[in-house]
Amino acid sequence: MKAKLSLAVLVIFSIMVVGGSVYAADEITAYMGTSPDNNITIVNYIKKKTGIHIKQTFQSFGEIEAKVRAEAPNFNADMCLGVGSPLTFMAKKNKWSRPYKSSNWLGVGSVFVDPAGYWYNIGNFSFVLVGNKDALAKKGYKLPTSWQELLDPKWKGEIVMASPLSSGTANMIRFSFLALYGDKGGWEFLQKLDKNIHHYTRSGNAPTDLVGRGEFMLGITSDENIKSRLDQGYPLVWGVPQEGIGYDGTFAFIFSTTKGKKYRLCKKVIDALGDQELSDIMAGIGYMTPRPAANKLYGAITPKYIDLDLGMAAEERSKNNDIWKSKFRITYK
């Protein structure tokens, strides 16, 4: 009798479990690589605007790139929403993405829209230098105003940045320094910097929180969470060193394997991304957006940018990863 009772409970729960996984009507799956908070902001915007629910899980740019490369040509998602230029250009080249010309993006420049419709860029982000106000004050230090100051031995073990192997932000940091100082000088700079780096984090945003909480004094980090962390009361100072900062896009594209209803839904999502409203939201976070909007992080001043060739940077990513490993993955004590 009681065995039957427990069996009944099991059966009911099984039905609940299985029943719970029934699909919502308008739903797509996307790989999204902005910070976990910003992913949610974008998902909520799309839901409000189109009624489409986006299933996503947080991964960093580099991790999504690895995943897509490993899955090709059997992708487990319908589109990418918020990935870096290396993956986006690779996808176009290999025909992993499916072109779509959205009329809602008319009038936006070619930095943000691929003329052939293979990708759309919802906002450029950059990397900046952050410091912990309290920790700096305690030591009597000031936030460096030049990248070269970071090589000072006094910062040993006090700087964090992400690993370019897993993070798109760190990849951007690396190609920016290579562009700024040239190939030889760039690697020399990175090698000297390495001596002061405590460790390389997985995600490009992690240094913002780590420095904000005071675990480390300085961080080279993505600018996308700084505004929200300042608002939450983290004792952060941030700045654009005099040599300037690099940038990368935050791209969206549809996978070549997406067909039928899912493709129609993805097109609607791409359309919605081109609205002024999303540019306003993204600029509120600190992005440089496709449509003019008031930037809440940088204000009216456009920061100094390092001259970059994103296409070449994408081409050289894997070569630079190998060099990176040969230089920084050596023996440790």
């Binding site: 580099g62 991790e63 690895a66 490369r69 490993a70 897993s166 990863n321 993955r329």
Partner: peptide, 23 residues
Amino acid sequence: AAVLGGRVPFLAPDTYTMIVGEA
């Protein structure tokens, strides 16, 4: 190991970085 390891390498988190980070 992944959260606390810092720069000290261990096989399991390295495998994770290899696969998830670099494919």
